[in-house]
Design a protein around this nucleic acid. Structure first.
Lengths: 209, 209
DNA sequence: GAATTCAGCGTACAGGTGTTAGCTGATCTT
DNA sequence: AAGATCAGCTAACACCTGTACGCTGAATTC
């Protein structure tokens, strides 16, 4: 709002319909259709503008899609960072992080599905974008494992990679599932991550001795 | 061939064009397009039949897609079973299985991508089908861990689930990658699976004492 | 206050889509 | 040998797609 005032009426309105387009795309994603079978015309229709006006905001649908991927990764990372600050007041970092993650998946199923789907689909550019997001998570995890837990660089990397794979994969399991089942999946994921952590711990000990 | 003789000329020819349709779909999948943006007409064209003749073989494109998913899972499982028989003559089961898996991904990128993609996409029916395939792998792994390695049911389940998640996720990392990088990924995956195994081992010991 | 910018619009086009209906002729059945 | 079956065909349909072109009028700039 504050920022919008300095933006001028024109730019303000433009930003508004840009958001409308993004929201429209997300809405249509929540349905059973994947992003690739989303149509420019339908998105424009739902956003309340003429099909041709779409081009005032994005060069094509792919550009919109990449924007969605970026936004999704960003909000998820912010959420997790907040969660980690919360645990400084006590609590298991594994538990809090995973529960936060699962809550995000439940709240933003459509967009998270986009993330997972485009990881393996469509253009190389899309896959790179998603991979970049996953790398962010991995990097933050590595930092934690090395600095706070004192793991070697190699072991921290190996561990982080495995954990990211497990957690995001578990996120995919939450799609056709109700709340109680989701909690079960979260619980199972927590245990699996602890399994990895324990394995890494054992490996470190074996190397030291 | 032997079976085909007893099938009659008509049914034989029908099976042939059915395969042509399946192959056509796989071919078009190898390109950058996901399954959802595959068209009945184009598939029929590549298979060398009229669009309308498609319906003599599948009720719609989804039915074709489900067939593809089933076939993919089947051949992959056969491959892994063969690999496991080979290791009875010595060799690490983890290494051989994962190397076989990675080789499959390299050889059948298109269809494996379908598997991963439809896991998170399109209709619920598709997701169920893929999930069923993943369950097959998990089940075989559980059996091995419980019977051969003596893990408890719960620990075998937890472990298998984590391993399947890691391995399939690693498969997705192989898409935009050359042979040497693929070998690196395989190596890393092997180490990660060993991490999980070591963690499970440590957990078992802790419980026993 | 005049000139410029530009978000959004309407029209139009060429091409693709899934699907229906009905025909043909080879294969199978009896 | 006669009749039934059925894989594959052509023609046609109603509809949706992305995008090019040029206009309008309000916001912005000078």
């Amino acid at each position: 709002m504050e920022k919008a005032q300095t933006l001028g009426v024109r730019a303000q309105q433009k930003e508004k319909t840009r958001r409308a387009l993004i929201n429209a795309a997300m809405n249509q994603l929540s349905a059973e259709t994947g992003f690739s079978s989303l149509s420019l015309r339908e998105v424009a229709r739902e956003a309340g503008i003429a099909p041709t006006s779409f081009y005032r905001h994005f060069r094509n649908m792919d550009e919109l899609g990449l924007t969605l991927v970026d936004e999704c990764g960003l909000t998820l990372r912010q959420l997790l960072r907040q969660a980690r600050q919360r645990i400084d007041k006590g609590g298991s970092i594994i538990r809090v992080s995973i529960e936060t993650f699962m809550q995000f998946v439940a709240d933003n199923t459509a967009i998270f599905r986009l993330l997972l789907q485009e990881r393996t689909g469509r253009s190389r550019e899309f896959r790179k974008a998603v991979e970049r997001e996953l790398e962010h998570f991995k990097a933050e995890l590595i930092e934690y494992l090395r600095d706070e837990q004192g793991f070697s660089a190699r072991l921290a990397d190996l561990q982080s990679d495995a954990i990211v794979k497990i957690v995001f994969s578990a996120g995919a399991d939450c799609f056709d599932v109700d709340d109680t089942q989701r909690l079960q999946i979260a619980e199972q994921t927590i245990q699996q991550v602890r399994l990895v952590a324990r394995g890494a711990e054992a490996t470190r000990r074996a190397k030291v001795e």
